[in-house]
Amino acid sequence: MSGVASRPTEHPAALALAHRHRLRVWEATPWLIALAVYFAFPTYLAFATEVLITILFAISLDLALGYAGIVTLGHAVFFGVGAYTVGILAKQGLWSEPITGLILAGGAAALIGLASGRVLLRTSGLTLLMLTLCTMALFEEAANMAAELTGGFDGPVNTRLVTCYVISAAIAGIAGGLWAQANAYVNLSTLSLDRAATVLIILVLGGHGRLYGAFVGALAYMTLSHFLSQLYPTAWQLGLGLLLVIIALFARNGICGLGETLLRRINRKAAAS
């Protein structure tokens, strides 16, 4: 992955930027669906809120993973920092205005992202994966340990990677802040491995490095597990597992990747006939 990152012209982010995105009519669909859910199914509001927050969180991960090639299993640390920022400020009676609260949450997460990114992003692959995971675990157990540890290590790091990582962290922090506001409480689950792993799976399932991968992935993963777990509370993971296995076996780069392949085939057939 480091090889990819070092050649800017072939970098996925550069490619994505070079290829100008033209808005198409169908791209309004997700937003229409979101609006429709709000009016048509008011009893699903809590679930829909959770889905929307997860989509935002997955988009933030996509910035790091899809566009900068940073494979991380510790992204929940930013979600958690954001959530705790909002939670602690509100609890201490320091700050309860929601919009600025979210900005503060994003700022706090970005700071953590800057500090940890400068150290961790020198590595890649499994090492990076484990480093991000362990950093998050440290945060989960003692929030101040990480700052002490990372202070002593400095080295040449690709600034663009760090920038991507910091922006991604800020958005994850905002997602966490939203979560805290929506639920009116914060607990350790906000920065758990469970959350970090789930969002990674969601993004890969939907397709990373794509505008709508996070959206599709979160919707597919969460809707399926929500309704399957109502039908069969003890063994709903079977259906979820099957979905993951089938997508991994038959699609490259998630559901969006599968959709693109199919579209291309249809277009080719149409062109041939």
């Binding site: 009893t43 699903y44 809590a46 679930f47 959770e50 979560w179 639920n183 409480y185 607990n187 689950s189 758990s192 469970d194 959350r195 929500h226 777990s229 109502q230 509370p233 003890t234 709903w236």
Partner: peptide, 23 residues
């Protein structure tokens, strides 16, 4: 009517409780 609380995170249990009451 059984609903899975999934994990100790709180969010899923809260959603399940809410839907049991409203739906």
């Amino acid at each position: 009517i059984k609903r899975d609380a999934k994990n100790p995170g709180g969010a899923d249990a809260k959603i399940a409780t809410q839907e049991l009451l409203t739906q």
